[in-house]
Amino acid sequence: MNKNNYVFLIVTLFAINSSAMAQDSTLASYIFDEGLSVRGGIGHIAVRDEFISDERYSGVIPFFGVSWSRFHNTYGYRLQLEYQSTPDLRNYNVSAEITQFRLGLDYLYPVGDLKFMSREVNICLGPTAEFFIHFRRQNIANGGSTLDVYSFASLFSGGIRSEAWMPIFAGLQLHGAAQMSIVSLGGRMVNPVNSSKSFVKLLTPFSGFNASAGVNISYGVTESLAADVGYRFDMTRISAWDFFVSGDDNFIASISYAF
């Protein structure tokens, strides 16, 4: 996928979520999933890390997450922590261990509503900050040496996030979200033996990019308890050093409890 395709994908996701930014807000706190949320799921991840090789590694990866969110008078915020790890990412019969970690903080401001299929859709938009780290250990013989072959990539990003809620009927709603980084401080594994390259750089979306988009169905079991299931796609692309791209599709279930 070339750079234009990435731009098209992200712009489309944002267009879907934020096409009615100028309208009045009717977003109410009951729509925003407040409280503590615990998430679990399963996903499929594909990674190409040219610090190791040009080859594509892929496999199944479990997903765990926890978040805390609150809606105040005029805005909502969400702090989330996510963890993914698998010991068996494969390229034919060569494997690698992958661990990914995300810490994110989102602020969401109601920006308006729109009508979609004769239903009201509530839109929020706001800044987001995310720390992402990807660590990889290559399972390869090492001639009796204790040196592990490993690679890492990290992004500390500031960006923008958009979310939309569409109530279906009492308690049930469809929720979509998309976010992308605008500026990042990137970190990357460099040649440990012979390199003058810095392993930290300031990155634009063209040299280091993080984005995610997802859609889920939420059902309020009680006033305090909500359950939801959904899909989320995450991608990270870094080209300031040896090229790195990872993408993961996740099927996620979560339970939220509002205190």
């Binding site: 996928m1 190409r48 594509r56 009927f169 899909y231 796609f233 990872s246 993408g247």
Partner: peptide, 29 residues
């Protein structure tokens, strides 16, 4: 029949998961 009426909303996440965007953005050489 009310549930049946709204079961379409489950389609977007299911379709998206099955399509697998990760395979689209991470190409093999």
């Amino acid at each position: 029949n009310m549930y049946k009426k709204y079961c379409w909303i489950a389609l977007p996440p299911i379709i998206a998961f099955l399509v697998g965007c990760s395979d689209l953005v991470v190409n093999a050489p």
